Structure formats: C-alpha cells, structure tokens
Computed example of a mutant assay.
Amino acid sequence: MEEKAFNAEVSRLIREARKQAGLTQELLARRTGMSRGSITNIEAGTQTPPLYRLARIAAVLNVQPADLLPHLREEASGLPARYADDVASVWSAAIKLKDADGQG
C-alpha cells in the first residue's frame, strides 16, 4: 500500500468512526484538544495525525488506535520501514491499553 493510499484510508477510518460515535467534527476537536480545522484536514486526507493524536482521537471515539489504521495483514510487507515501525508502536500501545482496561 502506498503512502498516499495508506493516509487516505486512515482518513476514511477516522471519519467513519467519528460518525459511528455520533460526533461532529467540532465536538471531536474539542474533546481531543485539537482545532476543527485539524479534524477537517485529517478527514480530508490533507493532514496526517501524528501517533499521539491518533491515540487521542481513538480514545475519544472509544475505539482502539489500531481500528483507525488500514488492515495491514497482507499489506504490511509493502510499507516503508518508518511506517511499519509506527504501526507496530500504535499496535503495541493499543494492546497495553486494552490489557490495562482488563479487556485482554
């Protein structure tokens, strides 16, 4: 999966999760401490959220950070190393959060 396609899929997953949670962009922005413009840009695919913001967005949307990442089972081998490392970090953090919540 190319970087552009990966980022577009992250944007789509965030937008879908926000709508599923019944939140407006404005409310998501307030709850994450971000601007509505940033949320709009993230959902439009013109801004990629850093990992700490992705985790914050996931927490507000009551999903795991990994839920906001494309399914990478078949695709992971095609990711540049810098993205594979980021995905691994988010996945690890999600597992730790899940275990801390007693869901593991």
Rank of each mutant, 00 (worst) to 15 (best):
L69C: 08
A59H: 11
L54P: 00
A76Q: 09
T46H: 14
E74F: 14
G45E: 05
P65F: 04
R82T: 03
I57N: 00
L69K: 11
P70T: 03
P70E: 04
L51G: 07
E75W: 12
R82A: 03
Y52C: 03
L72A: 02
L61H: 07
T46V: 03
P70W: 05
A59T: 06
V60I: 09
A81S: 13
A59K: 14
L72K: 08
L51Q: 10
E74P: 02
L54N: 01
H71E: 09
P80R: 15
A58G: 07
P70L: 04
L72N: 14
A81R: 15
R56W: 03
P65C: 07
L54W: 01
A58C: 07
G45I: 06
V63R: 12
A66Y: 11
P50C: 09
A66V: 11
A58R: 06
L79I: 09
L54C: 09
P49K: 07
H71P: 00
S77W: 13
L79Q: 06
A58M: 06
D67G: 01
A55Q: 04
Y52Q: 08
P50I: 09
L68K: 03
Q64Y: 04
V60P: 00
A81L: 14
T46R: 13
L54V: 07
L61E: 01
D67N: 10
I57C: 04
G78S: 14
G78K: 13
R73E: 14
I57M: 09
L54I: 05
L69T: 03
L54R: 08
V63I: 06
L69R: 11
Q47V: 03
P70C: 04
L54K: 12
V63M: 05
R73P: 01
D67M: 05
D67E: 10
L61G: 00
Q47W: 10
P70A: 06
A59E: 06
A76F: 13
L79G: 02
T46C: 02
T46W: 05
R82G: 00
N62V: 04
A66N: 12
P50D: 10
G45S: 09
